[in-house]
Design a protein around this nucleic acid. Structure first.
Length: 553
DNA sequence: TTGATGAAGTTTTTT
DNA sequence: ACTTCATCAA
């Protein structure tokens, strides 16, 4: 253990003075606002390192970090492990709001009585069933009820955690804030809330307006701002800064502080969505083939109605063999272990050489189920017979992997061979009712959909699961991510139609995902879906949004 | 059956 | 800003 004034940030130069202040703060609560790429996660990781290594957070006290997304909470935990090592990081609890709430419910469930009462083996389901099942929406309020009602629960939480980190705090809802207050208001716990009001894009879903001010008052938190941006090249930062000047003038820099020619901003105008799709598919193909840009380093962002905006683009990308992945449909399914199992097997069965997929499958099929050499040998030969049999059926035409029935048949054969129990063991929730069957149906259905867009099975499989794919998603989904190249499609008045403050924030999030190259598209016409009242509607560029780019392009 | 009118939806995560 | 769906009057 070292003393507080001996501490220095571990192997990173990417901390500006205010971040260092925040990392080493021991007496005050903090409200840290910071724009895109300022290193909020890094600051939190360094702070965890400081607190744990100097003993400001002394054993057995722990740090609680609360995020919104599972991904974000994993990332933060991983970063802390990297900074201060596995052993100290064991006292760093990184949870989502929902996970934190569920832990409280599971530990203090008997506190819930009357109409809140819950059975011991309650489930999380689509609707609230008295005593037996709750919904996601019930979790945080029930945790609040417990903490408010039970002094034992309150004290247990307060005794456990000496420090609390709140990530992406601009998106905190009323209920979530209530949970934080009921646990930690007027206690010894030191809080750090981190976020960016300019990136508040979940207002319509209940994110509290002015949450930073409210929190700063309630918790007497000291406000701090980070000004640096370690993500984007200067040209992009100048454009972002022009938007900051409009959204939050005090946080803006002088343009002289952002000198340099690096970075690319382009605005491309098109007659219609067909021209747009063709052109984008061509340039993306070019970047990947000739400039050796990784497909996964390219993101295509839309404000809303991804399906509508990307129909033609999908076809154009397929025609050029550009692998892409649509986050709205694929993401949840693709991260399921059973999805990996299915795509790996289809890859192997379709004859593609993929040693990675082969190894992962053998792990499950052979090593998981075999306890001695003989069993292993038998499992292995049974596996090879199955694979060869499927391949043979494909080659003689009795099995067609391009059809729903074909894929469904192979998948059910695969589950049978591995054993349903072994598949269920892949994830805790697969044991619940019909969950596994539904997931398998959805995965097969999604693969069939992708095939109908005119792509080959290997292409479909890579775009479904692999990292080597251009990412297509809504601006909202892109929050917290970064890419070498970002394309924001449809910078038109008709696209960004909501309240200007919120639309501006969304656009800001979109453009600030780009590290090196930002491409904006504007169409004069976009065809409406069939049966629409009006057709071939005229589109108009969003003067303000295009303007930010034009000044710096 | 048609047109007119108005309301609702559009952007999401979570064990 | 624009679509979709429900309802009502003609």
């Amino acid at each position: 253990m070292i003393s507080a004034d001996q501490w220095l940030p571990s192997d990173s130069l990417k901390l500006e003075p205010n971040a260092l202040v925040a990392a080493k703060e021991t007496t005050r609560n903090l409200a840290l606002t910071a724009g895109p790429g300022a290193g909020k996660t890094e600051m939190l990781a360094q702070r965890a390192d400081f607190l744990l290594r100097t003993g400001v957070c002394r054993y057995p006290k722990r740090i609680l970090a609360i995020s919104f997304k599972v991904d974000a909470s994993h990332n933060l935990k991983a970063r802390v492990r990297k900074r201060c090592g596995w052993e100290l990081a064991a006292r760093f609890d990184s949870h989502t709001f929902h996970a934190f709430a569920k832990r409280i419910i599971d530990r203090f469930r008997p506190v819930l009585t009357g109409r809140d009462a819950l059975d011991e083996d309650y489930t999380v389901g689509p609707s609230r069933i008295y005593r037996r099942a709750i919904t996601f929406a019930d979790m945080v309020p029930l945790a609040v009820t417990i903490v408010e009602r039970s002094a034992i629960a309150r004290n247990a939480i307060r005794k456990t955690y000496s420090h609390v980190f709140l990530d992406e705090f601009q998106d905190c809802t009323e209920e979530q804030y209530k949970l934080i207050k009921s646990c930690f208001l007027d206690t010894a716990a030191k809080l750090v809330a981190v976020g960016d009001t300019k990136q508040r894009i979940m207002g319509w879903a209940g994110a509290m307006e002015g949450i930073f001010r409210i929190y700063a008052t309630d918790f007497q938190a000291h406000p701090l701002n980070l000004y640096q941006n370690f993500r984007s090249e200067p040209r992009l930062r100048r454009m972002q800064n022009a938007m900051v000047r409009v959204m939050d003038p005090p946080a803006a820099l002088k343009d002289e502080q952002l000198q340099g020619d690096e970075g690319i901003i382009e605005i491309h105008h098109f007659e219609d969505a067909t021209g747009e799709a063709t052109h984008l598919a061509d340039v993306i193909h070019d970047w990947i083939e000739h400039d050796e840009v990784e497909p996964s380093d390219i993101a295509l962002l839309v404000s809303r109605q991804q399906d509508l905006y990307c129909q033609e683009l999908r076809a154009a990308l397929n025609a050029r063999g550009v692998p892409f992945r649509e986050e709205d449909k694929t993401q949840d399914l693709a991260s399921e272990p059973v999805a990996g199992l299915i795509t790996d097997f289809l890859l192997v069965a379709s004859g593609a050489s993929s040693p990675e997929a082969h190894r992962r499958l053998l792990d499950i099929v052979v090593y998981e189920s075999a306890f001695d050499d003989e069993q292993e040998h038998r499992a292995r030969s049974r596996w090879h017979r199955f694979v060869n049999d499927v391949r043979y059926q494909i080659s003689n035409g009795s099995l067609n992997l391009g059809s729903r029935t074909g894929i469904a048949r192979v998948v059910s054969g695969l589950v049978e061979l591995i054993g349903r129990d072994s598949v269920v063991a892949l994830s805790a929730d697969y044991a619940q009712g019909d969950r596994l069957n539904q997931l398998i149906d959805n995965i097969v259905g999604r693969l069939v959909d992708l095939l109908q867009d005119g792509a080959d099975l290997p292409d479909v499989l890579t775009s479904f699961s692999a990292d080597r794919a251009v990412r297509i998603m809504s601006i909202h989904k892109s929050k917290g991510l970064e890419f070498d190249t970002v394309i924001v499609m449809g910078v038109e008045k008709q696209t960004f139609w909501g309240r200007i403050e919120e639309e501006r924030s969304a656009y800001f999030v979109g453009i600030s995902r780009a590290k090196r190259r930002l491409l904006l598209t504007v169409c004069e016409h976009r065809e409406r879906p069939e049966g629409a009242r009006r057709w071939d509607l005229q589109r108009t560029p969003h003067a303000e949004f295009v303007g930010y780019a034009e000044s710096y392009a």
